[in-house]
Amino acid sequence: MAETDPIRPTDDEARALARALLDGATSGALGVLADGAPMVTRIAVARDEAGGPLTLVSALSQHTTALRAQPACSLMVGEPGDKGDPLTHPRLTLQCRADFVPRPGADHDRLRALYLRQQPKAKLYIDFGDFALVRLRMTAGFLNGGFGRASRLAPEDLGLA
């Protein structure tokens, strides 16, 4: 008996839903490898000029140490609604590479301003010495748009190539 691939071909509807999930995200679940073991934490999320995920992390956190040691990570965005089964609500998982933004520098200053426009409360701590901006560069993605609506995504599908 032949297996049926449950993943649908990536179409414009899937691309639009994935883009909307990423654009609407203010937080997400970051998955890292900490001392060889999986770890997930919630992070604040903004978007860079291309619409790619951008976050701010503290050197005091375990996930920052893990990202510096192993920059491969994942980010899941998309919150369940107030009603119904949480598994029927759409979510987007991105496989990424964490790129720490050096400071000082023009790139840092530009991304700092972008981040603060989207996460204004971060003004309280963004300039503390232990905080760093991190671009999460998408390498692959997976959209679960609800029951029977799953698609694989490439960076090109979200305009992130």
Rank of each mutant, 00 (worst) to 15 (best):
M1I: 15
E3D: 12
E3Q: 12
D5L: 12
D5I: 10
P9V: 11
D11E: 11
E13W: 13
A14N: 03
A20S: 15
T26Q: 10
T26Y: 04
S27V: 10
G31T: 06
L33P: 07
A37F: 09
P38K: 12
M39S: 13
I43H: 10
I43S: 10
I43G: 11
D48I: 15
D48R: 07
A50S: 15
G51A: 07
V57E: 10
L60D: 00
T64C: 10
T65Q: 14
T65V: 14
Q70G: 10
P71Q: 05
A72S: 14
S74Q: 08
S74C: 09
G81Q: 15
D82K: 02
G84K: 00
D85F: 04
P86F: 00
L87R: 02
T88G: 04
T88E: 02
R91A: 00
L94Y: 05
C96K: 11
R97S: 05
R103G: 04
P104A: 03
A106E: 09
D109S: 08
D109I: 02
A113M: 05
Q118P: 01
P120I: 05
P120W: 06
K123V: 13
I126C: 07
D130A: 02
M138S: 02
A140E: 09
A140F: 08
A140V: 06
L143V: 11
N144T: 06
N144S: 14
G145T: 01
G146V: 00
F147D: 00
R152P: 00
E156Q: 12
